[in-house]
Each structure stands twice: as C-alpha cells, then as structure tokens.
Nucleic acid binder design. Structure first.
Length: 1064
RNA sequence: GGGCGGGUAGCUUAGCUUGGCUGGAGCACCCGGCUGAUAACCGGGAGGCCGCAGGUUCAAAUCCUGCCUCGCCCA
C-alpha cells in the first residue's frame, strides 16, 4: 500500500464526472456484482418507466432508494443483479403519436394505417431514452440498461400471453361489459387521466320523472341529469334504510315554470328528506315507510318495447342499493344498465336485462321510439322531455349546473357507455390476495394494511382489455357462436394456424419471429373444435398487465431461464411511489396470485410524492418542476441524493427545497472533504502507509479511542436504522457524527498532533485513527451518496468503496466500543460549552485565562484535564468533592411521582416545596420525617439540584450515565493577576496578527517583521508571553514599543484600551 | 362521497407508540465569543393559541370525539 495523494479542493461536479469516467473504465458496477457471484441472491425488480417522457426529480428520488438498497445489500455480500426495464405500450404512447400526426379518431388511425401507426408508436417510445440513460448515469443509479427487458419485445409478449393462458385455463378470464367514458365522435373510450383533461361546467336539463306503479295509483318520482338514458330504464333503486313517503297533491301549483306537472289528487312516492326540495305543489303526507317496503314493486316502462325483457324477472321493478343517498334527486335512482357504472354493477347483481338503446355512433338504435331512432342522443333531450310531458310522466324539469367530462379532442360530452371488455376474475382470489398481502413487509406498514389492504378487501374484477392499437394483443380467438381459444405461445399460434390452414383457411405465414403486435396477429383466422372460424378479439391489454408480468416476462419465462423463477422468486425488494399502490404494486400481486398462486415481493417500499418547496404538486403548467440537472450541475449528485434521503422519511411527501441541497453540500460534503483533506495532505507529506506500524487501539490516546468507539456505535445504529427502513434517521445520525464528533471535535482537537514534523507514536495514532474512521464513514455513506466517498476511499485504500465489505456484520470489523469513554467525552464537551457560557455571563473574555477551574461531582475526568484546560483557557483544572465551598442546594419537584400521590392537591404541594428551606427540608426527607401540605415527601418526590454560591462563576449540568443522573458543576476562579492579564493580552495580539497574516495571504511558514505598541491602559506584557507571541506569529524580528502607533499601523481594543501593531 | 396520510417557530423538521421537569434541532435573523478551522464552530436572543373546538386526567403536542385544511388514491 502506498501513501495517499494530497486531496486538493472539493469541486463536486468535476469530481463526480471524473468518477463516472473511472467507473466506466474500471467496469466498477459489473465488478461489484461479479465479486459477489457466490453470494446469496438478493432479488430486486426495477419498475419499468416509460421512456417517452422526460425524467424528472421524482424519478431521481425513486432511483435513489432503489440504488441505495441494492448497493447496501451488495456490500453486505449479496448477489444483487439489476436488470433495467422499459414500459413501452399503452395509451400515453398512442396519444403522443396521435397528437403529433393529428389522428384524432379511430377512423383517422385506420385510414392512416394501423401498421404504420404502430410503427410510429414503436419509434416514439424511445424519444427520451437517452435522457433517461444520462440521468441514471449521472445520479449513479447502477442498473443494467444494456440488457433491459422491454414490454414490446416478442419474448416479453410471449410470456404475457403464457400468463393469460394460465388465467384462461383456470377460468379466471371472462368477457363482459364495462361502463367507460366514451366519445362517439372519435370512437374511443377514455382512461381516467384523459377524462380529467376535459371536465367542463355545463348547464343541462334535469328531469323529475313519474314512474307509474303497476298495481297502485301512485307513481315513484326519480331524477336524472341524462334524459337520453331514460329509454334504457329498466329499474329503480331505493335505499333500504332511507325513509320514503307517499304524498297526495292537495292544491294546484302557482307560477309553474317549464314543462310537466301533476293534478290535484295524484299521489307520488319519494324520499321524505327531499320532499321540500322536489315538490312544487302543496301536498299531504299519506304514509311513511322505509325503502325496503318498496322493493319488488313493478312499474310501467316509460318507453314500452324499447328494451327487451329477455329472461329478466326483475326488469321494471324497484330494487334496493346501498349507493342511494338523499343528498340530491328524489332518493330514487333511475337505472339504465348500460350507461352508468353503478347501474351496470347493480344490473348484474339483480339481473336486469343488459341491452343497449344507443349505438357506438352515439345515436339511438332502431326500435326505441319513432321520434328518437337514429338520432344523436344529446340532441334528444328536448324530444324526450316533450314525449314524457305528453304522456303525463314528467313531474318537472330543472336546469342543472355541474362539471361533466368532455372529449379533450373534440369537445363533445362523453357518454358513459357499456363496452365489451375482458376481465380477470380477481374476486375469485380475494382471500389469497389478502393472505399474500399479509406476508409482505410494507414500508410504511399503513400502506399495506390501510390503503392497499382496503383496496384488496373491495377488490373488483380487473378489466384488462382496451380498444386500442398499441399494446400486447389479447391472445383470445372467438367464433361467432362463442367458442374460444386462448393462445399461450408462438409455437401454439403456429400450430393453430397450420390447423386452420389444413381446414382450408388462407392465413399469412407465421414465422418463429412473427411480430406479435396488431395488425399482424389480427390477420390470423383460426378454427374451432367444431370447425367454425375464429377471429381474434380486437383488444390490446391494459399496459399495467405488461408491467404486472415483469417479474417473469423479463426472463422470457417459462420459455427460458426456468431457474429465475425456481431460485429467484419471490422478489426481495421493490420500491416505487405510493401512487403505484393500486398500479404496479397491485398488478404484480394480481398476476403472481392468479398465475403462480404465490406472493410476488417480500418487501415493498412505498415512497411519498415529491412536492415543491411550498408543498404544491410539481406540474409543468405551474412551472414549479425541479430539473434534477439544476442540482447535478451545481451541488452534484451526492448532495442531491443525500438531501433527498435526509429530508424526511421515505414514505412522507418530500417538499423539495433547492436550498436544502445547498445546505447538504456545505455542511456534510464540504466538511467531510475537509476532514479528508486534512488527513490526506499530511499523510501524503509524511508518506503515511496505513498498513505499516499500526498502533493497537488500546495504546492510542483517549481522544482516538473515543472517536473510534463513537464510529462503532454510530455504525451499528446505522445498520439497525437501515433494517427498519429509517434511512433518514440513519443518515442524519451519520451526518451529525461527521460534522460534530469527527470534524468539530476530533479533528479540531487533533490538529496540532500532525503539525509535528517528526514521526512519533501520538502522530501515528492520530493518522491511523483518521484513516480508519474515514474509511468507515466512506463505507457507510457509499450506498446513499456513492461518488465523493469513493474518491476518498480509493485514495486511502487503493480500491473502490463499492467493492468493499459492509463493516457491520462481523464483530471484528468495527473498532472497539467503550461506552463509558463516550459518555465521559460527552461530559467533557458539555463542560467546555458550559465554560464558555459561564464566561459570557461573567463578562470575561475567552482569551483572558483563569487561574483555577474546579469540577465538582461526576466521574473521574483526570485524563481530560489537559483538553479541558485548553478549551476553557484555565491554567489549572482540578477535581474537588467539597460542594459546599461553591454551592448550595435547591429542591425541584418530581411531578410524575408527586402527581400520582397528590392528584388534585399537586399545586399546593408544589407551592410548599418551593417556599420551604431546601437545606432543612432535604435533611427531613433523608430522615423520613418530611411532611409538606399534608403529604409525606420522600427522596423520590424531589430532585436535589446544586447551585453555585455567589463569588464564583459557576454552572451545574446534568450528566446521565447508566440511567443515573449526576450533577456536575464547573466553577471558575474569576480573579485577575498580572500574569493572567499578560497571557490574555498576548493571545489577543496573536489572534489579530494571525488574522492579518491570513488577510495578507502569507504562507504558514513565512516570517514577518512585527512592531507592537502598548498604551497606558494596557496590562504589562511579560517576557515569556512576548516570546510566545513572536514564536506563534513567526515574527523573526519584533519590537515592543510604548505609546501610540503610527498612522499606518493596525489598531484594536481590548477591555477598553488600545493596542497598535504593524506587520511587514 | 369513501379510504389513507399530513397540519409543531418565517422555512425544513424531532417529539406522539408508553401523557409528566422549561416542546428539541437545523436554516434564516440579531447580539456576543472563538478560529492559521471549512460555505466552519461556540454562547446568548428573538421567534410556538403544537390546525380548531370539545372530552378524559391532578396533568394533553401526545389519548378520545367532532370539525377545518392540505395531499394522495378511489368513487
């Protein structure tokens, strides 16, 4: 091993870039995996981002947590392979292409050509791949992007097909309807985020409709904002617990506005709470009853013949539904099965006929009503209202203002429309899902138990098909009479194509590398067992299905890599934003449960959202998006990563404050670098070899043993915090250690030890200690902020820190701990601080020494007296036990004990304690005879405090060791002697001259010529101190004069008298 | 409308599980000190209806109830 190089200044960006280069040249990432080849695997799965969006700061956050766990586990000795992945299918891709090529409807796409369109999609997927690569590399996210899994690759699709077939064979796949927001103008249904693009406030007619009961004169009143759904009405829903009433119109209404009405004597039924809201007539209440009494009653259809009853027994009857409320309407919900999600679910549940009254073109189908057939539904509101009015079925109309989703492309209102769709029967495996979820270690646990658990308890069947073009095609072929085949591999497809060809179908060729996308797969026609032609169901899969298959499809399982599932499944760790709870976290579990009947991942870290510094969501439109490069190019990736991890718990929302990154840079990294620089510069100068002349720890001074012990303690706690997912606490503690213990105390106290030019034991001890602590800090920091510490570690140890071993597991790897030494040093530091506080209060300059200092109480600090004398600027430190000389006692109540004993009398007892004489009371307490305010007071009820007597400057602090609180006092002697005054004066002058030297930019070694003028008020400067002054300031030639200095001399004041000096 | 989480100093936050001495820290601000020690450090100061309102208790930031508010997810 050779001596380290001198460190140079810290330039984070240049340093990180040079390290990136070094990693590339040395293949450090690959080596970090290879040298763990024999280790136990730790399986990480990368959630695939889509590369057709630019990466943002939130991706940096997620990748930091992915990376740090993988690096940590690697250092621990696990084999952690990291395959990159890309999500390349789905709606966002199609929308991008549609916008670019102005293809605003399905017809336009078909006209353009589906093949060409999909080709455009395939290309557009990679728009930002380079930006992603650069970001990943710059932030040091180690992942294999050269061999990623890609959801559009045939291998991936084939594996997904295989998975679907498993579901199909388990009867978990079925065809049904799903009510979706649909735009008849473009012929497409919309996902929720597209819907969100198009909400508009509109004013529309709403109607209160009278549904005449079959065997009763009364009508039930129902309300709807979509009159066009009324011809499709097949049922009325009431709340079983809601109170309804039957009322009779008792008077004609005056000032009737709009169409509709009711005659005197007519009877209607509605929720009691909404009576005033709805009725425009004076009415008398005939009866009141719960909704359950209405259930089963039949009524006369509004548009007879519009819907075919079919097998349904419940059509045009009242049913009960728990979603019915009395917040608006009449407390009765008109149900048209195909045009509302609640309606559809209710219809399925109670058996209403599932029949469309509206076509895909948005117009009524033939046979509804002569005035409606073939007309666009939104043009029919008026006609329908008139028809109802004419047949006395309308009670009233009311204009209604609400937000309603509109097509973001055409501006037309969307229709909620029941579409053919394929589902995975998740409801059938609900119990297994819950069971598996219980086995997952969630961070934080409330996401698993709460948000995710809640979702699973209410799990619905998963609608996995989309009427789109760019995606994994649904591999189900279907004949007109409903025979179905699900294809699970290319080989099977080829086989089926051959079979069909043999039966006379003319299919295109189906080679081994057939592109599994549309429209190619659409062209294959298969043949059923009974000999009918089968066509592919014209859907693609929800792209969430793709990513849900990633854990096996990334390996092309089961066609290849069987061992990846037998040996490397379930996954050990995944990590994504909390918004993935019902996204990727769910689809992974859904697929693994339905296909493998297994848990999918053992640990899941769910990250909080990233917000701007004001707590607002980052969005392009608000312009508050933080570009990661702003910080990569300024403070660097280390500071960005460390900031993000220390800013809060990973699952809490992160308010990203650019100033926080700067602060991290200035405090943690700059400090660490300067500690390193301090060590490296002297080590380089001295030719220090960390492997030579190692001084055993027990032979090193207390200060060294202390910092080594602290380092051990911090390292162990760091590991515990990591295991508990408390990365933020771990890193905050480490940061505190580096800044306060290591830099501000150890290095500050050790500085002079390295100044000595000759080698000695003390210097060697210090250098080895610095080397060991720095190396340890590097290892601990490496997973979180991998750059700078790699530079430090490599320079000190010759190889990358990322190839080093995590220092925690084996006992011998950490320096010895000495907790009693740690707590003593803590006391020493507190005493040093206390001394400064005493001086401020006593108005005594820090540089003016005190003759004596006494430590009263506490453990033996003999070995630290020298440090304390220096820190406190006291000539002589001693320990004394005679408290009374400096102190008197005070009693302070222990409220916890007294509260239990005295309850409501506590205030009067407290009063009694504070007014009693402490000395005699304490004697009584010890004798067991103390009684105050009627209560017996024992030594447990009070705490004894010692307070300094006047005449000494003193302060008492509490020192805790082994659950015991000890009072320790520091007393300073405040008298001033000529010797002390001289010393203090010398220090003040030295300080000024040193500052001047610094201002002049003088080298540390350089000599100066010095003249000092003392005036009348100054204390005498003794010979010794004058010599010391010359020595410290390297004043080769020095003169001491009396009087006022010339105009070109420097002037300053000490205790109100002036001093002049001049440096040449 | 439902579920989950948050609301503590100008800002970022710790403390809440298990109630108890004066609610702790960092940034920024002011005063002082210290420094051949770095964008550092130390002491002091100012700055807190601990979201609001009730309840439990001798005692509530902490436990309970309701509300307000912000965020996310779902309707």
């Amino acid at each position: 091993m050779v001596a380290p190089n001198a460190a140079g200044e810290y330039d984070s960006v240049a340093l990180e870039e040079s390290i990136m280069k070094r990693w590339k040249e040395n293949q450090t990432f690959a080596r970090s995996i290879e040298y763990r080849r024999d280790g136990k695997p730790f399986i990480f799965l990368e959630g695939p981002p889509t590369a057709n969006g630019r990466p943002g700061i939130h991706h940096v956050v997620a990748r930091t947590y992915k990376d740090l766990v993988c690096r940590w586990k690697t250092m621990e000795g696990y084999l952690v392979e990291r395959k990159g992945g890309w999500d390349t299918h789905g709606l966002p891709v199609e929308i991008e292409v549609q916008k670019r090529l102005d293809l605003m409807s399905n017809d336009a796409i078909m006209e353009f050509g589906m093949e060409k369109f999909n080709e455009e999609c395939r290309n557009s997927v990679w728009t930002y791949e380079d930006a992603w690569r650069k970001m990943s590399e710059r932030m040091a996210f180690w992942v294999d992007l050269d061999n990623p899994y890609v959801t559009l690759h045939n291998d991936f699709i084939e594996s997904s097909w295989w998975a679907l077939k498993q579901m199909f064979e388990k009867d978990l796949l079925y065809r049904g309807y799903k009510v979706l927001p649909y735009c008849p103008q473009t012929g497409t249904s919309y996902s929720s985020h597209e819907v969100a693009l198009g909400y508009k406030e509109v004013e529309e007619p709403s109607v209160y409709v009278k549904f005449k009961l079959e065997d009763d004169d009364a009508s039930i009143l129902a309300w709807t904002t979509t009159p066009w759904t009324l011809p499709g009405n097949v049922g009325l829903a009431v709340g079983p617990e809601v109170t309804y009433c039957r009322v009779r119109i008792s008077e004609e209404a005056g000032n009737w506005d709009g169409r509709g009405g009711a005659k005197v004597g007519e009877e209607v039924i509605l929720a009691k709470d909404l009576l005033k809201e709805v009725m425009r007539h004076h009415v008398e209440i005939i009866s009141e009853f719960p909704g359950s009494e209405l259930v089963g009653k039949a009524y006369i259809p509004l548009f007879p013949g519009a819907v075919d009853r079919g097998e349904s027994k419940t059509a045009w009857t009242v049913v009960s539904a728990d979603f019915v409320t009395t917040s608006d309407g009449t407390g009765v919900v008109h149900t048209a099965v195909m045009y509302g999600e609640d309606d559809y679910n209710l219809g399925r549940e109670v058996g209403f006929p599932e029949v469309h009254t509206v076509g895909m073109d948005g117009a009524f189908v033939e046979g509804i009503h002569s005035e409606l057939d073939g007309k666009y539904v939104k043009d029919c509101d008026d006609i329908i209202i008139n028809l109802l009015t004419d047949s006395n079925k309308l009670y009233r109309e009311k204009m209604y203002v609400h937000d309603y989703p509109h097509c973001w492309r055409t501006g037309h209102p969307l229709l909620y429309y029941g579409m053919e769709s394929w589902f995975v029967r998740m409801t059938a495996v609900k119990e297994r899902l819950l069971e598996f979820n219980d086995q997952v270690e969630w961070a934080p646990d409330w996401v698993g138990e709460g948000r995710f658990g809640e979702w699973l308890r209410n799990v619905k069947d998963w609608a996995i098909s989309r009427e789109r073009f760019w995606g994994t095609p649904l591999p189900v072929w279907r004949s007109e009479d409903g025979e179905m085949k699900c294809i699970g591999s290319i080989e099977e497809l080829q086989h089926e194509v051959e079979k069909a060809n043999a039966a006379g179908v003319e299919n295109p060729t189906c080679p081994d590398d057939v592109d599994l996308h549309r429209p190619i797969v659409d062209d294959f026609v298969l043949i059923s067992e009974s000999g009918s032609l089968m066509k592919r169901e014209p859907f693609v899969m929800d792209c969430w299905f793709d990513s849900g298959c990633a854990f096996f499809a990334q390996w092309h399982y089961p066609f290849e890599n069987e061992d990846k599932i037998t040996d490397a499944f379930p996954i050990d760790y995944i990590c994504e934003g909390v918004d993935q709870t019902r996204g990727w976290f769910y689809t992974l579990l859904a697929v693994s449960t339905t296909v493998f009947d297994s848990i999918c991942y053992k640990r899941c870290l769910s990250l909080g959202l990233i917000l701007d510094k004001d707590g607002k969501k980052m969005s392009k439109s608000k312009g508050n998006v933080v570009d990661p490069w702003d910080h990569f190019n300024k403070e660097g990736a280390d500071s960005s990563r460390w900031y993000m991890v220390t800013a809060g718990a990973p699952w809490n929302p992160l308010k990203f404050d650019p100033d926080g990154v700067r602060e991290t840079y200035a405090k943690f990294f700059l400090t660490l670098w300067n500690v390193y620089k301090f060590h490296a510069d002297y080590a380089a100068l001295d030719g220090f070899d960390p492997e030579e002349d190692i001084l055993p720890v027990e032979k090193r001074p207390e200060l060294d043993r202390w910092i080594l012990s602290r380092a051990s303690t911090v390292a162990k706690e760091y590991q515990n915090q990591f295991i508990n997912w408390d990365f933020h606490k771990a890193c905050r503690d480490l940061e505190d250690f580096v800044i306060n213990d290591f830099s501000n105390w150890y290095v500050r106290r050790s500085r002079r030890r390295l100044w000595d030019e000759a080698t000695n034991d003390d210097k060697r001890a210090c250098q080895h200690t610095l080397h060991e602590v720095l190396s340890l800090v590097c290892k601990l920091t490496a997973p979180v902020a991998p750059f700078m510490v790699d530079e430090i570690y490599s320079n000190l140890n010759g190889d990358s820190v990322h190839l080093s071993h995590w220092p925690i597991q084996d006992e011998g790897a950490l320096p010895p701990q000495d907790l009693s030494l740690e707590s003593k040093m803590e006391l020493v530091r507190s005493l040093a601080e206390t001394g400064r506080r005493i001086r401020v209060k006593a108005k005594r300059r820090q540089r003016l020494p005190c003759n004596e200092g006494w430590i009263v109480g506490g453990p033996d600090l003999g070995v630290f007296h020298e440090i304390l004398a220096e820190e406190l600027n006291v000539e002589n430190i001693s320990t004394v036990n005679e408290l009374d000389k400096f102190q008197q006692i005070e009693l302070s109540p222990n409220r916890k004990m007294l509260g239990k004993k005295c309850r409501q009398d506590l205030p009067s007892v407290l009063e009694a304690i504070s007014s009693a004489d402490p000395n005699s009371t304490w004697e009584e307490i010890q004798a067991g005879t103390c009684k105050l305010a009627g209560y017996e007071i024992t030594s447990e009820d009070v705490e004894l405090r010692r307070v300094e007597k006047s005449g000494f400057a003193a302060e008492t602090i509490t020192f805790s060791e082994n659950d015991e609180d000890l009072d320790v006092s520091l007393v300073l002697d405040m008298q001033i002697t000529p010797e002390l005054a001289s010393k203090g004066l010398a220090r003040d002058i030295i300080r000024r001259i040193q500052q001047k030297r610094k201002d002049l930019g003088l080298d540390i070694e350089e000599n100066i010529e010095l003249t000092v003028w003392l005036s009348d008020g100054n204390p005498e400067l003794l010979d010794n101190d004058w010599k010391h002054l010359q020595n410290e300031t390297r004043a080769g030639a020095a003169k001491l004069e009396l009087g006022t200095g010339p105009n070109d001399s420097e002037e300053f004041e000490v205790d109100d008298s002036k001093i002049y000096f001049k440096v040449n």
